[in-house]
Amino acid sequence: MEGTTQGDPVAMAMYALGLSVLQDVISFEKTQVKQVAYLDDLTGAGNIKDLKKWRTLVKENGPTIGYTPNATKSILIVKPEHYDNGVRLFSGSGVIVTRDGQRHMGAVIGTEEFKAKYVGEKVSEWVKEVDV
C-alpha cells in the first residue's frame, strides 16, 4: 500500500516486481499481444481486438498494484485499412488512434511519410541549435 519513497535506490526494483504481477495477467498466452515494459511504460503489438482485451486487462488490474494507465497518453497506431475499426473499438476510451505514426521512446513508428517528417523536424531543430 505504501510503496517506496521517490529516489529510494530500491524503488525501481520494487516497482518492477509489482509490474511483473501485472505482466503475468496480461501475458501473451492470455492476450496474444506481444509486449514490452520499460519503467512505467507498457507497449503492446498485435491485432486490434487483442489489443482492446489487453488494454482492458491493464485498466482493470493495474490499479491494484499501483499502475494507473493514462488513456490520454495511450496511442494506437494502426495500418490505414484498420483505422475505422480502431476508432470504433476504442471509442470513448480516451485512447488516441492514428494511422500516421507516433514517436515512441526516442524512435518513430508509422508511415514512411510520418517518419520523414519527424526526422526532418528533428534535424531542423539540431541545425538551429548548432547555429546558436
Rank of each mutant, 00 (worst) to 15 (best):
R99E: 15
I65C: 03
L42G: 06
E81A: 07
T5H: 06
S91D: 14
T5I: 10
E60Q: 13
H82Q: 12
V25H: 04
D24S: 13
I65G: 07
A16I: 06
D131A: 13
V25D: 09
L51T: 03
I75R: 02
I65T: 03
T111K: 01
I109G: 00
T111G: 06
T111M: 05
D100K: 12
D50P: 02
A116K: 14
P80H: 02
F90E: 00
V123D: 12
D40F: 05
W54I: 08
G110T: 00
V108P: 00
G7F: 04
T68F: 08
V87H: 04
A13N: 14
V58E: 09
V95R: 01
T4I: 04
P69A: 01
V25K: 04
E125K: 09
V10G: 08
H82P: 01
D41C: 11
I77G: 01
E121R: 06
K52I: 02
V119R: 02
H82D: 15
G46K: 01
F114I: 01
D24W: 04
R103E: 15
V78S: 03
T111C: 03
D100C: 04
S27R: 06
G7S: 11
K115A: 15
A16C: 12
S93M: 02
E129Q: 09
W54L: 02
A16S: 14
K79R: 10
V130G: 11
V119G: 03
E2W: 13
G94C: 05
F28S: 06
T98G: 04
L76V: 04
A37S: 13
D8G: 09
V87P: 05
H104E: 13
R88E: 15
N47I: 11
V95S: 07
